[in-house]
Design a protein around this nucleic acid. Sequence first.
DNA 1: ATGTGTGTCCGAAACGTTTCGGACATATGG
DNA 2: CCATATGTCCGAAACGTTTCGGACACACAT
Lengths: 344, 344
Amino acid sequence: MSRGQRPTLRDVARESGLSITQTSRALNGHEDVAAGTRERALEAAHRLGYVPNQEARRLRDPNVRSHSLGLVLVAGSQRFSDPFFGELLAAIVDEAASRGYELQLSTPLADEDPVASYERAIRAKRVDGFVLLRTALSDPRVDYLVEEGVPFVTFGEVPGPGRRLSVSEASDCIQPAVDHLVALGHRQIGCLTEPLEYVIAARRFESFKQALAHHGIEARADHIVPSGFREDSAVAAMGQLLASNDPPTALVAFNDLVAFGAMRAAAQHGIDVPHELSIVGFDDVYASRLSSPPLTTLRLGERAIGRELVTQLVAAIEDPDSATDVHLTPELVIRESTAVPPTR
Amino acid sequence: MSRGQRPTLRDVARESGLSITQTSRALNGHEDVAAGTRERALEAAHRLGYVPNQEARRLRDPNVRSHSLGLVLVAGSQRFSDPFFGELLAAIVDEAASRGYELQLSTPLADEDPVASYERAIRAKRVDGFVLLRTALSDPRVDYLVEEGVPFVTFGEVPGPGRRLSVSEASDCIQPAVDHLVALGHRQIGCLTEPLEYVIAARRFESFKQALAHHGIEARADHIVPSGFREDSAVAAMGQLLASNDPPTALVAFNDLVAFGAMRAAAQHGIDVPHELSIVGFDDVYASRLSSPPLTTLRLGERAIGRELVTQLVAAIEDPDSATDVHLTPELVIRESTAVPPTR
DNA sequence: ATGTGTGTCCGAAACGTTTCGGACATATGG
DNA sequence: CCATATGTCCGAAACGTTTCGGACACACAT
């Protein structure tokens, strides 16, 4: 059975015997309305099940909030590949809901300008702000949003002029992994990067080099292996490293998928993990408990990231001065992919 | 630099020398406008970068589409736990984008009525329809949406009156798993269910029983183990089964996480998988390639499910008669968690 | 000449809300 | 008693769009 028309402010006014003006002011908590009058208005509104029409409200005042946050998935079919994203997304939705916001998910159409999705959302006033994932050091989306003056928060610090709110990892994020490996006795420590044009990979790489320096170990260029984000790219990248006559005894991968790729490549070369090669991942993805051997990895926690992302974004939207950059410190989860180095 | 006011229909009218009325009609492709006039209007609109104000449009005609689909996450912190969801979501967003829709993600607040989120979205006219995941045989959300006349599609068939559009598994979905096990020589085949009040679990259970019957095997009640959705609930559920003095030689789990739980429980009891116990999962989650042993599992494909869900929902929205129920047939991915049964 | 169509066009009203400017009482101070 | 302030209230306009009802010009038939 279909409902009748939904009640309008006019109905509430008639019901309460007030003018439309005064009803509106009463419901919106303005000052110049007598206590008893407000009471009557509220009571009538409640009795009728009145809920204000957002379209009309926003037509009148284009600045009212939509109470939704935008998140544009990155292009390419393998975008979400990272199991990490699923959990992160859930955390974001959760936190947003608890603050009264929803999440608008979209994705660029095939070979569309990356900022087009953002333009659409802004023009349509569908969102109050954006969460940006997988941001690059030089990212047109960031430039666009800064210029447009729309609130947004990035995961990873993006350099440049203008207000750029971010939630990022501490600058010594890789340190615990290197400390752990050094404590085991490793001195030949390599790394499997993600593409370094991305802010997060760049930070991890800096931290990796600093951590080595901190232990007086020099970073060897031939032990640094550029990789993509996914398992298969890591498998490919591992080829020459393992063929080298002076391979590292330990490897830090910038995400768990890449670590799995490294483990697979090692297996293909008949190299035992962890006894011939130790591997540390990053993210503590669900699968890292299940791999063989179970993966030692750095854990930031999807929930913590999601929570901070939303908390700061909502702060930026509702009270720009209260938003603040946040740095998260990863914790090392030690499993079985790391061990003492082989004696040579 | 901040833009000036965005152009309105009035501006386009002035620019093109037409009335507002005629401009509107020209832009909306009505009949009674001369070819040259339409030309002028379109040209002016384009020159000004005019884009119609949705609020105003919808204030005037409440029936215009919002072009977004709603998806409400299930409550509880472990909602998304299933890595399967991440991929499914990405597939849904992709397919929606290619049809010009976005996805509105929300989640119920703590101890809130499950339908409240749907009510909010409908009242606010934020979405044109819903995708329902993890639906139960008797689901208040379904009843609500049917009554309200809002288009929706469920994953799994929900019985009851009214139009209920669904994408579901074929009724013999479990058959390939059982066939495979029987071919290996198994006759004692058990199953680890998900809660049977959910439509998908119910269908899988029916199919499981039918598949056994098809091979002339009787379903033994003590080989049917009720489990939750997640690994830990499966570990717990496995206890008594493995302690029994006549355990099955093979087990079909209703999802991969549960299968992992079963593998873990087996390991704890010193039971070798696959040589003492074969295990088949469902979903082909990312991690199933990595577990030890790698999991033999039934695969529907998140992308296929997401694509069909969106395709049918959009059909239901835009042309109700063209929407149709869809049945998907899973395919068996054979890995190493299944083998011939032990000779006793 | 009058009437009937047909192809184009437009004014004005309407959607539901918020707010500007003022009105009307009553109280306060002189 | 008048002037001024204060506490409440309301009418009307405005946001940008669509559409109803009609108007106008012209062609064609009568």
